[in-house]
Design a protein around this nucleic acid. Structure first.
Length: 537
DNA sequence: AGTCTCACG
DNA sequence: ACGTACGTGAGACTC
């Protein structure tokens, strides 16, 4: 069927404000229709309804999982029609009778799921999470995906060459030191050589009883003066950057747009964060000099700049608010260095002239608190004995008893209800919170205390994103939101609008909790513009 | 498909 | 005595 003919039939219906369109993973359909100039509105999405109702419980929220769980219906897999792998055909090339039957089944199942799930949403009183944080994000993310971002393929190709050279050189040196050739990328072979044949002191074992060869293990051996582990770590970094980024990213450049278009999942994480795939643009390197060169390959289009705006310490600010910790609130209000302030409070050391090591330890504790701290984890992070880590934690809770109370209150709430809530009412379920298995239960306790913080931060940036396009339009600004990386938004902005855009972006992000929640701690957003993502970050 | 490792917040 | 820091996605190797 010609697209024009299909659109003539569909567009009026899709855009009819009096007709509710119901589907699963509506963003996907929104992008497809939008590509042909049709706007899908209004709509309900059973995937998002399920995510809001049952986030954290086992099982996905895609159409097939929901149909199985709620209707006892096994939907036919699209692969039965298109085939899979190399011989797969496009949906457009499937026999129309088969395609129609498959599509009709999906439509029918989506409607029946909506009839079951939508009323439960109202009963559970979390309708505002769906209506304000989930549903309105669909067109926002669809537009971000469609815009894509420019990458400089020359830079990536040059980096690939440099990494190939560096890895090849290391490969020879590794074989020389090992006394034989082997597959460096095989953890099994590497473990056998390091800890078997060469007799280096092995650390921990993996779940399957193999020697662990993680970067941390190899770094410790390197610190003891062993040459080989250091070279393995360097080789791994180079091959990682090459295979995952410099080699793979050019393959994602769309020939029509010349840009890279990621796909965001709205209903993939337990905490309310987004995820990004094909390619994942939420894990572009930044921590090493070599890695940052890859980030530098993400560039603004001609006549534009990239603007990066990120929340400063948003999860610690959320913690200061929800746990109501006066020292933390004061430190944030004063614009202090929060890790130094924590160290000062814990160890009685003035911030002026504080040794770096002291601050580093307080920083690790702050992260630990967010993750659901344990003496074991902190000890591993800081490479100190567990007794010493336990002592730090004890000292921390003596100074910040409100945080110990917060953690206990959260665990207790989770035990009683089976879920925890963000400050905007998002529920995250922990079915194992009352398990008799200590391991399962402890994991749920750490995860649930973390989820309130990570989830609230995720809700805040969602609110900013939902409002951003309107705010920019009201100021007659043409800035386009391109990417989201959990606490950061990246925009493409016409050069002559950069100065006017930055304060608008900051204002929307910093006020994103309002008016639903008035935070007792200010949110701070740092923003800057540059020709590429590395320099803007 | 499972495991291991490592890139990000 | 045990086994643990929270949340992701992707690539390489192995079976």
């Amino acid at each position: 069927m010609p697209i024009r003919a299909a659109l003539a039939l569909l567009k009026p219906l899709l855009e009819d404000r009096s007709v509710l369109k119901i589907g699963a993973d509506v963003k996907h359909h929104y992008v497809v229709m939008n590509r042909h100039g049709a706007e899908l509105c209004p709509y309900d999405d059973v995937t998002l309804i399920s995510y809001v109702l049952n986030g954290g419980t086992a099982g996905g929220h895609d159409l097939a999982s929901l149909a199985d769980a709620w209707l006892g219906h096994k939907v036919r897999d699209l692969k039965e029609l298109t085939g899979s792998g190399k011989s797969a055909v496009a949906f457009a090339d499937v026999d129309p009778a088969n395609a129609a039957a498959w599509a009709a089944e999906a439509a029918d199942v989506a409607l029946r799921l909506w009839q079951v799930l939508k009323p439960r949403l109202a009963m559970d009183g979390i309708v505002s999470v769906y209506e304000r944080l989930e549903r309105p994000l669909v067109p926002v993310l669809a537009r971000m995906e469609q815009r894509g971002i420019s990458v400089d393929r020359q830079i990536l190709s040059r980096l690939s060459g440099e990494l190939a050279q560096g890895a090849a050189r290391l490969e020879h040196e590794i074989y020389e030191l090992a006394g034989e050739r082997f597959t460096i990328g095989s953890p099994k072979q590497l473990g056998d050589i390091l800890f078997g044949r060469m007799g280096l002191p092995g650390g921990s074992k993996t779940r399957t009883g193999q020697w662990a060869t993680t970067a941390q293990v190899l770094e410790e051996l390197a610190a003891e003066g062993h040459e080989l582990p250091r070279k393995i770590v360097d080789w791994r970094q180079m091959t990682k950057l090459k295979s995952t980024y410099t080699d793979a990213l050019p393959g994602y450049v769309n020939p029509q747009t010349g840009r890279v278009h990621t796909s965001y999942a709205l209903a993939a994480t337990t905490t309310g964060r987004l995820s990004s795939s094909e390619p994942n643009l939420q894990n572009i390197p930044v921590r090493t000099t070599e890695g940052r060169k890859i980030r530098g390959a993400f560039i603004a289009g001609k006549g534009n700049k990239l603007v990066s705006a990120d929340y400063s310490q948003i999860e610690l600010r959320v913690l200061a608010h929800v746990a109501d910790i006066h020292q933390l609130r004061q430190a944030f209000a004063a614009g202090a260095d929060i890790h130094a302030a924590t160290a000062s409070e814990m160890f009685g050391v003035p911030v002026e002239g504080m040794p770096g090591e002291i601050r580093r330890r307080a920083k690790a504790i702050n992260f630990g608190i967010i993750y659901g701290i344990s003496a074991f984890g902190l000890a591993g992070q800081l490479s100190i004995p567990r007794e010493e880590a336990a002592d730090y934690i004890k000292r921390y809770f003596e100074r910040f008893p409100g945080i110990r109370d917060y953690i206990e209150t959260t665990k207790d709430f989770a035990r009683r209800h089976g879920y925890v809530e963000t400050i905007f009412g998002r529920r995250i379920h922990y079915p194992d919170i009352r398990a008799s298995n200590v391991h399962l239960r402890s994991f749920s306790e750490r995860a649930s205390t973390n989820a309130r913080l990570q989830g609230t931060a995720a809700d805040i940036i969602r609110r900013a994103m939902v409002r951003m396009d309107d705010a920019l339009a009201r100021e007659r600004l043409s800035a386009r939101m391109l990417l989201q990386v959990h606490d950061e938004l990246i925009f493409e902005v016409a050069e002559d609008e950069v100065e006017a855009t930055i304060p608008v972006v900051q204002r929307v992000m910093e006020n994103a909790a309002m008016p639903a929640v008035s935070l007792s701690v200010p949110l701070q957003v740092d923003a800057r513009a540059a020709d590429n993502w590395d320099e803007a970050h």
